Simulated scan of single mutants.
Amino acid sequence: MSSPLASNAGPIALAAGLTFAAVDISRLLAADTSKERIAMMRETPFQMANALYFVVFIGLLVCVYLRFHADAGALGAVAFCFALVGTMDMAGNMWFDGFAGPWIADVAPEAILAGGSGMLVVGGFSSYVLFALGWMVFGIAGWRARVFPAWLGAAFLVAGVLGYNAGLPPYGIPIGLAMAALGWWITSGTQSARSVARRDEAAA
């Protein structure tokens, strides 16, 4: 029997994708480039938008599992690992921006102005690369394994390329919209299958 999460994969992916895109739009609106970086990071709307961005990354992780929890072959397993690791890595980056960044701006603003170095740069760069690669592989594998149609695979591939800059708005929006499209496709396909089943039962 399907789990409640798996049976509701379509609505979950649709809601997660739309929410992800909406939150990235709110981050774009909250980023007041006319102000100094420290002053902007101390503002409540900016802090809330970045903190919420971390939360919606969890929705993407759930959707990755829902789409590849069934057997999709070796390539599907690779895609699952790539997308999972990349999204977790970027989620950690967003957690830092949403929760640690504002605190550092208050207690040690000179650290923000100095920028990153050493392992901090390595960690940040890895999140960008792995997030982009993860969703590119997700799109290719999903199409090759026929988990979803080619146009959705292409959407995730393009969104993955743009997702290299997902830490900065509005580059996370394509991933959100691609996920929402996947949710819509799953939902409409499920509804069609149920309609056929009801017609068969009525004919019998």
Rank of each mutant, 00 (worst) to 15 (best):
G139I: 02
Y128A: 12
V137F: 08
M119E: 12
G124C: 00
W143I: 04
S117D: 12
L113A: 15
G116H: 07
F131H: 13
S117Y: 11
V122W: 11
I112T: 06
A132K: 00
A108I: 00
G153S: 10
L152Q: 03
G118M: 03
G134N: 07
D106L: 11
G118V: 02
A108R: 13
L113Q: 14
A114C: 08
F125Y: 09
E110Q: 15
V107G: 05
P149Q: 07
M119H: 11
F125T: 13
G115R: 04
E110K: 11
G134T: 06
G139Y: 01
G134A: 08
A141S: 13
A108G: 02
E110D: 15
W151A: 12
F138P: 00
A141I: 05
L133Y: 04
I112H: 05
P109F: 09
F138C: 06
A111Y: 10
M136R: 02
W151T: 09
I112A: 03
V137R: 02
G118F: 03
G153D: 05
W151I: 07
P149Y: 09
R146Y: 03
W143V: 06
V129C: 05
P109L: 06
A145P: 01
D106F: 06
G134C: 09
S117R: 09
P109K: 08
F138R: 02
A141N: 08
S126Q: 09
S127D: 05
M136V: 14
V147D: 07
V121Y: 05
A108E: 12
G123Q: 08
V122D: 02
V121Q: 07
G115E: 07
V137G: 06
W135I: 01
W151Q: 11
P109H: 11
G116T: 04
G139E: 02
W151D: 09
F148T: 00
G142Q: 02
I112G: 04
L130N: 09
V121C: 00
W135Q: 00
V107I: 15
V129K: 00
G153L: 03
L120Q: 12
P149S: 10
F131V: 01
G142I: 00
W143N: 10
A150V: 11
Y128D: 10
P109T: 11
P109G: 08
P109E: 09
I112C: 04
G153Y: 02
V129D: 01
G116W: 06
M119L: 15
E110M: 11
I112M: 14
G139R: 01
R144I: 09
R144W: 11
P109C: 10
G123S: 10
D106A: 13
G134L: 05
R144L: 14
M136E: 04
G116K: 10
W151Y: 15
G142H: 01
G115S: 11
S127E: 04
G153F: 03
V147I: 12
W151V: 10
S126R: 06
G124K: 01
A108T: 06
W151L: 11
W143A: 15
G116I: 01
G139V: 03
G123M: 07
